[in-house]
Amino acid sequence: MIPAGRPTAAAAGDLPTGTGHAPCHHGELLQGVFLDGDGRRCAGLVTLPMAGPGSSAEFLRRPGTEPGALTVRPAGRTKAARAAALAVAHCAERTGQPPCGGELRLTGDVPVGLGMGSSTSDVIATVRAVADSYGRRLAPDTIARLAVRAELASDPLMLDARPALFAQREGRVLEVLGPALPPLVVVGCALGGGAPVDTLSLPVRPPAETADDDVRAYERLRTLLRRAVATGDVPLLGEVATASAWRGRQALGHPEFDALTSIARRAGAVGVQIAHSGSVAGVLFDPAAPGLRYRVRSCLRALDSHGIPATRTFTTSTSTSTKEIPDGPARGGGRRPAGPDTSRRPARLPAL
């Protein structure tokens, strides 16, 4: 029986402890149904990375306890709990140890229900923390498989900032589009007044039921996005994101969508993007465009006049992708204490 309270510092210091972190994202640039290398239809998406908010996890492993003896703080993070159990089983098998229980502590500031990958961020941070407690680092494809098993569909946050078309229900990359997205300035906002979206209530159409014309349209957008990434064509990227957002709003029914696209056009933006499973959205600007500050300010004023709350203005990273990590022992690492429990924010993002 695991004590309900946290162990003393001395006791905790005698137990293997691991830490992990995962970022969030700002909705999607493209989402739809695509063809894989074998011509099979797959649901897929390309997310818009965002630095800043994320989830951190600390896992205190208790060798000799039952595998199901897992406690999670804050309570209620059921997906993270499943991820911890799956990661323990995976790492125990790889290291030749019996699976065991432990204590998982999560902290983070990713708002829930806006379509920013809050649950996936928790899950990936958890998997990384469990692996770290075993002295291992897991490859992105391994993390992806565990994440999908834990929450049925996963965002590609284990890939960090690499733009990739990701099959979210299968946990695999359909295509890496390039090392990095073209630089963007994003004026974030929240549609629907920032009310959280219940993703479980959204209609899910199996890929096999998607019309042939729709699949061809998604494949065309995929080709255009590949070209935009390869050539650094920001206006073309904006065109793809807007077309994908227009298709996505049909399921979400955002009444402000027409106003958002009109604001973007008048402010000289290259397009808009939305979360296809939430209320977060963004107006996309080319950072090299003349009069950028004026354009952003006019966009913010227009959003305010239409009652669309602005959230966060940020730039996408222009750094190259992170290096692939194979499954195996970690090269190093240390322990760091987890911070105090942080409740999830229901809507508003932290502002820059």
Rank of each mutant, 00 (worst) to 15 (best):
I2T: 12
G5W: 03
T8Y: 04
A12M: 10
H25L: 00
H25S: 01
L29T: 06
V33L: 02
D36Y: 07
S55I: 00
S55C: 04
A57S: 09
E58G: 04
R61F: 02
G64W: 03
E66T: 12
P74Q: 10
E103L: 13
L104Q: 02
D109P: 01
S121F: 02
V123M: 11
T126K: 04
A129V: 05
A129S: 12
L146E: 04
A147N: 08
E151Q: 08
L157V: 14
L157M: 09
L159E: 07
R162W: 01
A167L: 09
A167P: 12
R169V: 05
E170H: 14
R172K: 13
L174N: 06
V176Y: 14
G194D: 04
D198P: 08
L200D: 08
L202W: 08
R205A: 15
P206Y: 11
E209W: 11
G232D: 03
L236W: 07
G238Q: 09
S244F: 00
S244G: 03
F257C: 01
A267N: 07
I274S: 02
L292M: 13
R295N: 07
V296E: 13
H306R: 14
T313N: 06
S319K: 13
T322W: 13
E324F: 15
G328H: 10
P329E: 15
P337F: 07
A351I: 04
